[in-house]
C-alpha cells in the first residue's frame, strides 16, 4: 500500500457520499410524487428481483467464480426449510450449520 492517508480518507468519503446519495434519492423524491398502485407494485417486484439476484450470486459465486459446494448446499437446505415455512431462526442456523459441517468434512 503506497497511497497517502489524505487520498485514502478522501476516497472513503467520496464512496460514502455517493452511497448516501443513492440511498437518499428514493426517500427524497418519493415525497414529491404520488405513485400509482401499479408503480408501487412494480417497485416491490424490482426490489424482490434485486434481492433474489443478490442471493443467487452470493450463494453460487465468490469473486466471479463458482468456487464452493458447502455454501450452496447450506443455502439450499435453508431454502427448503423456508419454503416449508420453518421459523426464520431454524432456516438461518440450518444453512450456516450445513455449510460449516460440510467444510469440517473437507468439502470446499
Amino acid at each position: 500500500m503506497t497511497m497517502s492517508t489524505p487520498a485514502l480518507v478522501l476516497a472513503v468519503l467520496v464512496l460514502g457520499a455517493g452511497t448516501f446519495a443513492f440511498r437518499y434519492a428514493g426517500p427524497a423524491l418519493r415525497d414529491r410524487m404520488t405513485l400509482p398502485p401499479r408503480a408501487e407494485w412494480l417497485l416491490g417486484v424490482a426490489t424482490v428481483v434485486l434481492l433474489a439476484a443478490l442471493v443467487a450470486t452470493t450463494t453460487l459465486l465468490d469473486g466471479g467464480e463458482f468456487d464452493s459446494v458447502a455454501r450452496p448446499a447450506g443455502v439450499a437446505v435453508g431454502a427448503v426449510l423456508a419454503w416449508r415455512r420453518a421459523p426464520f431462526v431454524v432456516v438461518v442456523l440450518a444453512a450456516a450449520g450445513t455449510a460449516a459441517v460440510l467444510r469440517l468434512l473437507g468439502v470446499p
Partner: peptide
C-alpha cells in the same frame, strides 16, 4: 466466518425474507 457457515447464512437470511413475495 466461512468455518461457521456464515457465508451461507447471509443469502439464507435474504432468501427466507423474500420467499413469501415469491
Amino acid at each position: 466466518p466461512a468455518a461457521l457457515g456464515l457465508d451461507a447464512a447471509f443469502p439464507a437470511v435474504l432468501l427466507a425474507l423474500v420467499l413469501p413475495a415469491l
